[in-house]
Write a protein that binds this DNA or RNA. Sequence first.
DNA 1: GAGTGGAATCGAACACTGTACGAGATCCCC
DNA 2: GGGGATCTCGTACAGTGTTCGATTCCACTC
Lengths: 256, 256
Amino acid sequence: MFDSTRTLYDKPRTVCDCLYPGEVTGKQFTSVWTRDPRPAKSPGRSRDEIVRAAVELLDAEGLEGLSMRKLGARLGTGATSIYWYVANKDELLELAYDDFWGEITLPEPTAQTWQQTVAAAAHGMRRLILRHPWSGELIGRMPSLGPNALAFAAVLRRTFKLAGFAGLEIDYANTTLTAYVFGMTIPELAWNKSKADGGYDPDTMREAVTKATAGIPELTESIHNSWDLDPDQVREMAFSFGLGAVLDGLEARLVT
Amino acid sequence: MFDSTRTLYDKPRTVCDCLYPGEVTGKQFTSVWTRDPRPAKSPGRSRDEIVRAAVELLDAEGLEGLSMRKLGARLGTGATSIYWYVANKDELLELAYDDFWGEITLPEPTAQTWQQTVAAAAHGMRRLILRHPWSGELIGRMPSLGPNALAFAAVLRRTFKLAGFAGLEIDYANTTLTAYVFGMTIPELAWNKSKADGGYDPDTMREAVTKATAGIPELTESIHNSWDLDPDQVREMAFSFGLGAVLDGLEARLVT
DNA sequence: GAGTGGAATCGAACACTGTACGAGATCCCC
DNA sequence: GGGGATCTCGTACAGTGTTCGATTCCACTC
């Protein structure tokens, strides 16, 4: 089943590739999830351990702070040893990304309205993303086909189905909700990143924004409105406001 | 006003920095938009020209395909010449990102319901992002403080204000809409990227997804539902569905 | 215990990245 | 023509992901 003489780099081939070996240069869709993993025999170093260390490094230093050499150092091994367990950095990121999804608490659709269940899931997603900011940069880069991401998607889908959606609209509703959460949270990350990179100084930051929006009355008014409020609190309120709107809109589509 | 003996790398300093020059090592919030640009005297090479070339390169080869050396080659100059006009690559990306925003057609809030105006803007945003997929990877990385992005935000805000929203809710509504569009579109980019990187083969892709979702009945059902439909069309329909839901939800918040 | 073969590690090397630096070129104005 | 500002760019440095081949390690059989 598992041919150990092949390295991880031998991508699986289509029938076509086998018929015309060497001639066909086209690559094809490839993901960690479409390939059998290395068997983790040894008790010591394993794929899981590597992924865990990668996530730690990502949390600590962000996406651009993760390098194979640093990761190797953290694991106490050479950088290139990692390539025995993982085909390349992108696939390591796929694994880390799914590990991220594994951290979410699956909503329990019992003894609650579907709105409550979905709202809880939404807040959970937001908190999770904010806790692992690097995830936001991966969302637009790789489809999430890992088991943890899929498990979460399945639970959420079931919730919408139980709510009464049918056919394609189950998935439409599901996608709508996650889209809202992603779209609301990802730009937050950009701000947090700017704060972190620049060594947060509220005054200079405020000054920068004021300068940028000067001359646009619509926006100076906007800034004035929330001038004395805690930014984090405003974001929380905005999130809840939009979430309520999305849920109401979905419900309206349910009744008809 | 513009001191030419300073290079672009001398970040603007706070009063504090000036009092204790050299001792203060802390950075601070910095963006292209908070600093005076190089005056574009020369008729030939200019900042705009560089940004335009960068966007072309980004469109052609994606975010990871843009390197200063390649950009220099495209401009017919040395790579490091670019640094005369731009402090570093991140700021070049900020400029490219705002150039991206400049491409959007500002909605005209006349002779239409606010829903129609907003829907038009949403579809415009989605098309724009899909046309420049690299934008999706920047959204979570840098706040958009450029004039074009702000102009668009201002117009959209005015639309919500005219619709009847008041106070902070103007911005909440505005954020909710853009969040939905971003969140719906960004994961699309991930799929398109996988398709492009892998040399699109619908069968292997389908096989991969089938394999990944096997064992999760919720998701196999989901896939089965849209099995024979054109993925692009499904995404369009999903986008319109969710957009309608968001608009309805916002309207509900307006009446009360 | 010796031998063997696969599992796993890793050092060296390659091509590439962003960018700091400083020497040179080019231009315009007096 | 002199001089100062503007602009170009070759070189270099530290860092990146990844390949390759040699080396070590370990469990197993004879």
